[in-house]
Design a protein around this nucleic acid. Structure first.
Lengths: 142, 142
DNA sequence: TTAGATGCAAACTATTTGCGCAATT
DNA sequence: AATTGCGCAAATAGTTTGCATCTAA
């Protein structure tokens, strides 16, 4: 998370996974896309470099990143899951028109969790905020 | 939203939909289940009263409720979408073990939205909080 | 050397759609 | 009477899995 490809290798190995050329390519594509891509979007981009890669391998790679703690699967909203390799605390804003997911700043969620009343019944482990809005590109189009 | 079955009929009609026995049954099941059910769960429960109902009809009914503004589709998290007929402001806690969704109290989200920094780029329309935890039943089992 | 990863295809889950018939307004 | 909804089955989207082969450690 500090270096680039070499650290990915070490992180994967530490989590009991292997580092393959396919995974390095998926990692670079994921980090290069500002909008959190879907598995399909990553697949199309990676295939330009590694034409023989399969979609299942992309899913497999993303799962190994999650397991190693360097990637988060975002399943809120309609449509396909999106993936985020960012580790700093931040929130996500999903565009109601194009479905893309953007990072936004804001106070950390921990401040809020303390104010949540679970009635003492639940063990509150965490949570996240899902914001809905319209992105710059879609505002321009409408 | 104030009365029961008769108001459902009026609400649906006002939104340009019809009120059928199937839809009334779906509505009653949805309101009778404390845990926001999936379409499949509603289907199984409704079939006990209306054995000939199909899953597609359940989806169709839920869509008409959404269109009429009396039901909300909750698509966060893994697995199937869950449906909520509650209209008061509240948050949802999803159990990481069983996947069920529970209502929890807490400060309204509007207080928070003001603190979110969208960089002036987005039109912020709304959002919701998704909490993760472990429900009473699953805590007992583990 | 060997456990784990790859690529392919098939399976699977959740949801939507097309069609002829039936029921609601 | 005219729509709209119904039930069925097939289609679709997203994701997972089984299997034979290959490769990183």
């Amino acid at each position: 998370m500090d270096g680039e490809a070499s650290t990915l290798r070490e992180t994967l190995l530490a989590a009991g996974h292997r580092c393959t050329p396919q995974r390095e390519a998926v990692w670079e594509v994921l980090n290069g896309m500002r909008t959190h891509p879907t598995a399909e979007e990553i697949f199309r981009a990676v295939r330009e470099r590694v034409p023989a890669i399969s979609l299942a391998t992309v899913y497999n790679a993303l799962e190994s990143f999650e397991s190693a703690g360097v990637c988060q699967k975002l399943t809120q909203g309609e449509g396909a899951a999106r993936y985020d390799a960012r580790t700093e605390a931040h929130h996500h804003l999903q565009c109601v028109d194009c479905g893309r997911l953007f990072d936004v700043g804001g106070p950390p969620l921990a401040d809020w969790l303390a104010a949540i009343d679970t009635g003492g019944e639940f063990e509150l482990l965490g949570g996240h905020l899902v914001l809905e809005g319209r992105c710059t590109a879609c505002r321009r189009d409408s």
